[in-house]
């Protein structure tokens, strides 16, 4: 479903150039569950932003559902983000002046879905995420775990194909973290491709595919049993 080919992104900071992504290759099957781990500054968020069309690579190519993203216009990117991709952020990024319901339906509002079609979809999600009683509450009236659930509801209201989560549990205690991760996994079980960036090995370990990054490159991938599937040395062999 996703293919990245030789993706590069370099930042220039005061004469020094940082390779946030260094000739990055990756294939993801539909419905897969991946975690991305690695030290701070290794390029995890950059990778996620590329996949989510929030950032554009300097070079390399990106196919999403058999479409080359580099060939699309800004307007088309916006449509793909709206319909095919859901985001969950560490800092929730809810709009404070809007209620939980209004935050959740924002992706529908932006594309002009009429209110009578929005309501049943939001109601259904609210109920499913146990937020029925918080529909009219504003973000500052909700706990961290509740906020993140609202953010997840907003991410999946469009039934996207790909769900990207950048340290979704970074601001939560272990109980709330567990809830949020189970929720994400439940959605993955329904066929949404899930990619979680995390610093927590316990959370990262739950994924089917675990990617380890350093200096903008994929250094190791392990499967559910902890076996190395693909490492930098394998690739070096392959290239030779």
């Amino acid at each position: 479903m996703i293919r990245l080919e030789q993706l590069c992104k370099t930042y220039h900071l005061g004469g020094e150039s940082v390779h946030a992504l260094d000739h990055f290759d990756l294939c993801i099957e539909a419905g897969d569950y991946l975690s991305v781990m690695g030290p701070s500054g290794s390029g995890k968020s950059t990778l996620l932003n590329m996949l989510g069309l929030l950032d554009t690579p300097d070079s390399g190519r990106y196919w999403l559902e058999e479409q080359e993203m580099g060939a699309l216009s800004e307007e088309q990117h916006a449509r793909v983000r709206n319909q095919r991709i859901g985001f969950v952020f560490q800092a929730y990024h809810l709009i404070d002046r809007l209620s939980a319901r209004e935050n959740i339906e924002l992706p529908l509002v932006l594309t002009g879905v009429p209110p009578r079609e929005r309501k049943p979809r939001v109601d259904e999600l609210l109920e499913r995420l146990g937020l029925e009683h918080h529909a009219t509450h504003h973000p500052h009236q909700l706990s961290g775990g509740q906020r993140q659930r609202v953010a997840i509801a907003r991410a999946v209201i469009r039934r996207p194909a790909l769900l990207l989560a950048d340290e979704p549990t970074g601001n939560l205690d272990s109980h709330a973290s567990g809830e949020v991760i189970s929720l994400l996994e439940e959605l993955n079980g329904e066929g949404i491709t899930l990619l979680v960036v995390t610093h927590d090995p316990a959370i990262g370990g739950r994924a089917r595919r675990r990617l380890w990054m350093q200096d903008g490159a994929l250094i190791r991938e392990t499967d559910g049993d902890g076996n190395t599937v693909n490492s930098e040395s394998d690739r070096a062999d392959a290239r030779r």
Binding site: E74, A78, L110
Partner: peptide, 16 residues
């Protein structure tokens, strides 16, 4: 700024 970024992430185009 952050809100604009969010709206764009949620699918708002530059024109919107």
């Amino acid at each position: 700024t952050a809100e604009i970024g969010l709206l764009k992430a949620l699918g708002a185009s530059a024109n919107l």
